[in-house]
Design a protein around this nucleic acid. Structure first.
Length: 800
RNA sequence: GCCGGUGUGUCGGAACCGGCAGACGAGACAGACUCAAAAUCUGUUGUCCGCAAGGGCGUGUGGGUUCAAGUCCCACCACCGGCACCA
């Protein structure tokens, strides 16, 4: 058959659409399967081949599941709120709504051209009122349950984008959007109390099947540490300085304390501190540093001693100095530490620089040279002397602290609460009102959605306030509680809000009464398989798990975890092996590929190019190999014979069906395709095949190259759509050949191969092997010391 | 520094539970077809010695376990990703 993709691809895309072939059924007796891919941000640049790879994986799984008789939900949508669109709007004056609609249109047509089997009747757009109404609704539920709070705090602020960033969005001290340096700024911001869910998010990982590296990254991100809080009495005032430590058993070795420059105890004791001017100068210096600079200066320790405040070591009773230093962070623990210079590298460096005593409490190192951080016998530690096990000494000290009322066990997380607002226009309005009398008041649920007003100027204000602050008609309102004059919150939600629950909306996208019908949620949840990029593992994944767990706790969803299984695809690199980027000019546009090679070749190639989870460079030549493969499949129609059945081919078909079926489940698409290539190479060698055999191959190929498969299916008189035909079964018994080639080794080196009947007995096999002339030659005049025979695998004769 | 991962031909990459390393694809070389090129088809293609038969060496490095190691163990090196003065 002639392979004319330009004709067959649009033909089948149209037929699928008209036949509603890929739409999920709502009231089905079939088992369900929910496959989810990360919905794209509709950028102006259009789709990228990376999107194609990201979607092709579960596309294949979804198509296979349908053929296996599942009711499959494989939806798509658009995560359309976000800065790039807004920045583009500011530059061009075109409204973000218009830009978004245009981009979504572009993405839709590109996705359809590739023939993805998405359920297009369930498309979700996070910027639509019918959608963000429910984003606001969930937010209000969180507000109601006390998970939303406002705080003035040091926040990550991007001076270029003029927005507050969450920790997750400012990794490495760089703004995630524009990559400029993030600075610390004191600001009133909204937070979601995600830390309240830290433990649940950690424990939930045991219930799900995530790739190990994904799981590990989340564990690290949550960063749970178990330790103790200890209260240090101050000499001059009746106050205590509370610290957090993971090694409370080293308390006898504490010779000084360090607090973060922002620690409130300084403000509280200004009059008492004799060198307050020095402290202020140091604090001023720190506040100017970016987070990045602060964390990069790992070698040289700086700090200032607080004159006028002295702490007392609660176990030794000794007076110890207190310093401020920027190596202690206000955002972790209590913002204060007990320093044990003998057994902590940072404290050691600080003590050396400031000439502070170093007291050894764990034997094993040489503290005149360096801090010793290993294990060993406790010394100089009163009642802890002689302990050699860290666990025991910590337990003993914890008991003591509790008994004396000076401390207790504590848990800390690296994860921080989620800064949940942006001073931007293109986002969900936060449905809260500031009332001079009542404080912060939620707007009533019935008034949702709180619509984003239409504005002309999208630029943020110079003072970093939201463009919405300039719209009086939006800002001025009545307090829902007391009816008095009030002002609306003018910040909007961050980009990650809409994507935190979109997988729920797909289940019931047109519901105007609820975010989704509970019955439908019960049927479809959890998502059976979620695939996306590694870059979302610590942000979107954590956020959406948090929202879902919250909804579970208030009885709105039936499962505690949203995603049963999570995998990630690797990047597609440019032909030069570098990450694709506009500036490098190495970006491949999927449209260009489809124009020249067709969608089926593109789809097959992105899955064939390498291990799905690893990065691999684009190679047009390699793609040509996939084109040849599909052409050779199309040409198989020339080899059809009634008697084309050949014993060898029959087992090859069974083997291929098994291999393709199993590999798809493990995301090993490259070897699945290789198996089909091997099969057609064999068919060409044999020279003929039957119609039934070709129909098997066509169905195996269908998830990868569905247009060609449909065309062949139709040509061969298959019933209905190939896409809904039954997935080929295989017979394990028939995947086995009658004979096997077994390698015969002498002293571990292969010297011959012999053809043996499958399952041949050991003695017989060795007999045949010895009879082989080449083996016999080697054995002449030697003694056989050992004979090893693994049936159907190998024979090894050890001789002397 | 900590956590995770990777290291195999010229390239992308295969290899189940330890059992013939290099499947499949690309590239290269040779041949067929062609006036020619492209496309297509056939063959060769880890490396070294050899006319050949055959043999030696080969999965980042060094050791080890085993009849047998890309695969297991120990030590190290390089690269990639994430976190990072986290107390």
């Amino acid at each position: 058959m002639k392979y004319d993709f330009r004709e067959i691809e649009p033909k089948w895309q149209k037929k699928w659409e008209e036949g509603h072939v890929f739409e999920a059924e709502d009231n089905s007796s079939k088992p369900k399967y929910y496959t989810l891919v990360e919905f794209p941000y509709p950028s102006g640049a259009g789709m990228h081949v990376g999107h194609i790879k990201a979607y092709s994986g579960l596309e294949v799984v979804s198509r296979k599941r349908r053929m296996q008789g599942y009711n499959v939900l494989f939806p798509i949508g658009f995560d359309a709120y976000g800065l790039p669109t807004e920045n583009y709007a500011i530059k061009t004056g075109i409204h973000p709504r218009e830009v978004t609609d245009r981009n979504i249109k572009k993405f839709t047509s590109q996705l359809k051209r590739v023939g993805f089997s998405f359920d297009w009747s369930r498309v979700v757009d996070t910027t639509e009122e019918g959608y963000y109404r429910w984003t606001q609704w969930i937010f209000l539920k969180m507000f109601e349950k006390g998970l939303v709070f406002r705080d003035t705090a040091l926040v990550n602020y991007c001076p270029n984008c003029k927005v507050v960033l969450s920790n997750e969005d400012s990794q490495g001290g760089k703004c995630d959007i524009c990559h400029s340096d993030v600075v610390q700024k004191s600001k009133a911001v909204w937070y979601l109390r995600i830390t309240e869910y830290a433990d649940k998010l950690l424990q939930g990982l045991d219930e799900v099947d995530y790739l190990p590296n994904i799981r590990q990254q989340q564990v690290n991100w949550i960063g749970k540490s178990t330790g103790a809080y200890v209260n240090f009495k101050l000499k001059e005032v009746d106050e205590t300085l509370r610290i957090y430590t993971t090694r409370c058993d080293t308390l006898f070795g504490v010779t000084f304390m360090v607090i973060a420059p922002e620690h409130p105890i300084i403000e509280a004791n200004r009059q008492r501190i004799s060198n307050i001017a020095d402290l202020d100068a140091y604090r001023e210096l720190c506040s100017k540093k970016t987070e990045f600079e602060r964390t990069q200066l790992t070698k040289e320790k700086t700090g200032v001693r607080i004159e006028g405040l002295t702490a007392i070591n609660p176990v030794s009773g000794k007076e110890i100095p207190i310093y401020i230093s920027d190596y202690v962070m206000m955002g972790y623990g209590t913002g204060a530490i007990m320093a044990v210079p003998a057994h902590d590298e940072r404290d050691y460096a600080f003590a050396k620089k400031f000439g502070i005593d170093i007291v050894e409490v764990i034997k094993g190192g040489d503290i005149s040279k360096a801090a010793y951080t290993g294990d060993g016998e406790m010394i100089n530690s009163g009642f802890l002397n002689g302990y050699t096990n860290k666990k025991d000494s910590i337990a003993r000290m914890l008991a003591y602290l509790k008994e004396q009322g000076i401390g207790e066990m504590g848990v800390q997380y690296k994860m921080k609460d989620w800064a949940f607002n942006r001073q931007r226009y293109w986002g969900e309005p936060i449905p809260l009102v500031h009332c001079p009398k009542c404080g912060i008041v939620a707007i009533p649920y019935e008034e949702l959605p709180l619509k984003l007003p239409n504005v002309q100027n999208f630029a943020p204000g110079e003072g970093g306030e939201s463009p919405l602050a300039k719209i009086d008609s939006f800002v001025n309102c009545k307090c829902p509680k007391c009816g008095g004059d009030a002002r609306r919150e003018t910040d909007t939600m961050p980009q990650w809000a809409g994507s935190s629950w979109y997988f729920l909306r797909y289940i019931d996208p047109h519901n105007a009464e609820k975010f989704a019908d509970p019955e439908k949620l019960r049927y479809w949840l959890p998502v059976d398989w979620y695939n996306g990029g590694m870059e979302h593992v610590t942000r979107h994944m954590i956020y959406s798990r948090f929202w879902h767990k919250f909804l579970y706790d208030i009885g709105e969803v039936p499962t505690s975890e949203p995603y049963a299984k999570r995998t990630a695809q690797g990047l597609i690199l440019g032909p030069d092996g570098e990450k694709m980027s506009k500036s490098k000019g190495n970006v491949v546009d999927p449209n260009d590929v489809v124009d020249v090679y067709g969608a089926d070749v593109l789809r097959t190639y992105v899955l064939f190019m390498g291990d799905y989870a690893s990065a691999a460079p684009w190679s047009e030549n390699s793609m040509k190999g996939c084109k040849r493969f599909l052409e050779r499949v199309a040409d198989l129609t020339d080899l059809l014979r009634e008697d084309g059945g050949n014993r060898k081919l029959e087992s090859s078909f069974h083997k291929t069906a098994k291999k393709v079926s199993e590999d798809i489940e493990e995301l090993k698409f490259n070897t699945a395709i290789a198996a089909m290539m091997t099969l057609i190479n064999e068919i060409y060698e044999v020279g003929s095949l039957t119609r039934e055999q070709l129909l098997i191959l066509v169905r195996l190929l269908c998830p990868f190259a569905p247009h060609l498969s449909e065309e062949l299916w139709e040509k061969l008189g298959g019933k209905g759509f190939c896409s809904t035909a039954a997935w080929p079964e295989w017979d394990d018994g028939k995947t086995v050949d009658e004979t096997v080639e077994v390698a015969v080794q002498i002293n571990g080196k292969v010297r011959a191969t012999v053809e043996l009947p499958m399952g041949c007995e050991k003695d017989t096999a060795i007999g045949i092997a010895k009879a082989d002339p080449r083996i016999a030659g080697q054995l002449a005049g030697k003694t056989i010391v050992k004979e090893i025979c693994v049936p159907n695998k190998i024979i090894n004769l050890v001789i002397r």
